[in-house]
Design a protein around this nucleic acid. Sequence first.
RNA 1: GCUCCCGUAGUCUAGUCCGGUCAAGGAUUCGGGGCCUUCGACCCCGUAACGCGGGUUCGAAUCCCGCCGGGAGCACCA
Length: 517
Amino acid sequence: MAALSLDAQRAELERLGGPIRSSPREAKGREEGALPELPDAIDGKVVLRLAPFPSGALHIGNARMLYVNDYYRRLHHGRLLLVFDDTVGSQEKRIAPELFDVIRHDLDIAGVPPDEVLYKSDRLPTVYRWARRVIDAGGAYVCTCPAETLQANRAKGTACPERSQPGGETADLWQKMLDGGFAPGEAVLRLRTDLADPDPAFRDRVLCRLSDLDHPRVGRRWRVWPMLEFSWAVDDIELGITHVLRGKDLVMEDRMEAFVWKLLGERGPPFLHWGLLRVAEAKISKSKGYQQVRSGEYDGWADPRLWSIDSLDRRGIEPEALRRFTLGFGLSLADIEVPAETLYAENRQLIDPTTPRRSAVIDAREVEVADYPPELARTELPNHPDRPELGRRSVPAGPRFLLAGSDLAAHPGGEIRLKDLVNIELPSPLPVSGPVPARFTSRENRKLPRVQWVGASGAVPVSLLDPDGTHRIGLGEAALAEATPRQVFQFERIGFVRVETDQVPGVSPLRVCFGHP
RNA sequence: GCUCCCGUAGUCUAGUCCGGUCAAGGAUUCGGGGCCUUCGACCCCGUAACGCGGGUUCGAAUCCCGCCGGGAGCACCA
């Protein structure tokens, strides 16, 4: 039901074509703070691109790239290309074959469907054509220095011997690179910039290099691979990209692309950046995550410790919440660290009104209530305290209950209120083991400590996966036996949880993933 | 160290380009109160910011200079 109404809202907004802002609160609060329009954007003609490297699943840190690009695609009715940046990588940064599908799946979940999917590994001939253009324009040379020498020279600002090599010779050496005349590491194609450039990193950057790594898609078909910047200098033009929206960690790449364009007389798209976004709780590394998934230490790409898009979905966090969360930072260039609570707050607003309440107790202990009113063997509870339209449910109640161990421990000898039901008095001290004998006192709703309870009859074992990868075990009310996969509940006084995707209805225990308080 | 970027409340952010309408708006957090039989929601109230120092100007969060602080980049990775 929740999903339905949200989907309906989303569909409606999408139909309107505007930025996705759905709640009235959003409309008044953020509308004026909407992201600025893209420079020189022509409605319907905007082409944007997403360029992930397939080494790990998309995570919360990548969400900004997703939603900012998606925002502008929608705003200007443009196209968004998914271009896998699979230019072999390196020994340390390997492409993981299954990640192509994982990432597409992540985009799906995130609600950012690409208009077209492309692979850099399919575009080598185009890159070679451009490399040739650069060489012919006298803008590059083949350098055969060992990597260390090259770097040392660059740092000092001195030229490698090949820097002055004539264009014809460069063309020959380049051909030799393509033909396999050099082993990996023996030669690179370098851009001739300015050895006096104040930024040492920019001095004669490498355009193309040799690699014999086995590429998951194209194997060893190509040996000469472009560096990321050069491949984009090529494709931002070839693919007709109108605006490059990327994190500011890639600003130097802008310079490199612009340099190549100027050399070749091309006019490229403008660049827009945003600062680094870190979620305080999510200390993650893409490549490290891969190891942990691979080794089985983590529960696949949806392990909550990964903070992957998939894991957020697993936790019942709506893509719309992620979208609002990331778009709320605008295009600010400051590097920021934000508490996950900000994301949770967005999600709460979205799901709270439609999420049914259920009772569950962690670390349950049985309590037997003497003098319990027999007519209260069952009771009826609202599915949502503020939304009568969500209906009510009938649950088994006393005289045998299950209470959270922590609640019991907090009130030995005291009178407590079983929420929505009756008052009971606990013994003191509590028995070390076995059922706790308690005594019914009254039904009136007095100001007593309120505790969550579960009727012992038909109670459902629950296993709750926390974001830190640990599990809490408990017992939930009988109605939970009918819980279906992916259903979201609020366990009262615990938090929002989502039933695991692969939960088989009726099978014990009921496995749920914790979302947030 | 070098290059670039950024400094608005606890945390984010709007405003800075085109100085006055900003004694600075919003979100979230926190504190207090109310309410509903949740540690959730909702309502009310509150704390709390223009990094520092100069300058320009009738007037500066906005322009200029200097300083300080933070971050990112500096690969034959992406």
